[in-house]
């Protein structure tokens, strides 16, 4: 027989994992709910997943590739931009939605029990479908350009995994933070919009003045953007930038989960 013990200290890590197993259906339900809910009664449905990044692609490719004529290692600037946009769009979409989803779920948080981490997790999971669609779009661009990726491509899944992990870590932190401070809900979309330009999404780090590269390297997404391009176009392995991204990922997971855990116990009272 199931035994439930309730104390002021909440659950242990082990207890939490057991709860996640016991209530796993809620995670599926949340994910299904947001996927279906998002595209129900939209005429073009999934097309919307492509349209937004497609517009960014056209603008960025045009500005950086055609107007500023930045060096794209001899690759078509639109294709070059697209490789970066795949990972960036996933990151930006999830991170911007993480806080809002927490607030949106406040009624459920107040009325039923489930491991609250399911809310950011379901956002991360929902967006995976959009990520797949974007990868498809990228493959089409590769075909159109008749571009044959470098053999480094075998590492691309690893880079994608890192992007998803970093995104999840940031979402855990933001999910908890927004419960206390609604300000994050306003700040994050703003930051991601700046980030689209401040991060080497549409241009390579090599076009940045050497003096400022360390600043760019502090950005957790820089390494992953450089890494994505390395997988397709080869060149020098961006070891330093990727290690920094890896460190950020670990930091966000540890800090994010610890902070989430602290807020979680009284989340229903705070939200």
């Amino acid at each position: 027989m199931e035994k439930t013990v309730i104390t002021p200290s909440g659950t242990s890590l082990w207890g939490y994992l057991r709860d996640m197993r016991r209530y796993h259906r809620i995670l599926y339900a949340f994910t299904y709910r947001s996927i279906r809910g998002k595209y129900a009664q939209t005429l073009m449905g999934f097309l919307w997943v492509i349209i937004n990044p497609l517009i960014s692609l056209i603008i960025l490719g045009f500005v950086f590739g055609k107007v500023a004529k930045l060096d794209t290692q001899g690759v078509d600037p639109f294709l070059y931009t697209m490789i970066g946009l795949v990972g960036w769009t996933y990151f930006a979409n999830v991170v911007s939605a993480a806080g809002g989803n927490m607030i949106g779920a406040s009624n459920m948080i107040k009325k039923i029990f489930f491991p609250r981490i399911f809310i950011p997790l379901s956002v991360v999971a929902t967006a995976l479908i959009e990520l797949v669609v974007l990868i498809g779009l990228m493959l089409i661009l590769l075909l159109l350009n008749q571009y044959w990726p470098s053999k480094n491509i075998v590492f691309y899944p690893l880079v994608l995994l890192l992007i998803v992990l970093l995104t999840a870590g940031v979402s855990f932190f933001l999910g908890a933070a927004v419960v206390r401070y609604r300000d994050f809900q306003q700040v994050v979309p703003f930051l991601t919009r700046i980030g689209l330009y401040a991060t080497p999404v549409a241009y390579g780090l090599h076009v940045v003045d050497v003096k400022y590269r360390f600043l760019f390297n502090l950005n957790p997404m820089t390494g992953l953007m450089e890494g994505s391009r390395w997988c397709f176009f080869g060149g020098i392995f961006p070891g330093e930038a990727l290690s920094i991204s890896l460190i950020w990922t670990v930091v966000f997971w540890v800090m994010g989960l610890l902070y989430f855990n602290r807020v979680e116990k009284t989340m229903a009272d705070l939200i």
Partner: peptide, 21 residues
Amino acid sequence: SRITVPSKGRIEMFGRVNTLL
């Protein structure tokens, strides 16, 4: 129903619990 934690004390429950608030 474990939606929030108590400040003091302890509760033990045996069996599958469902809440309908």
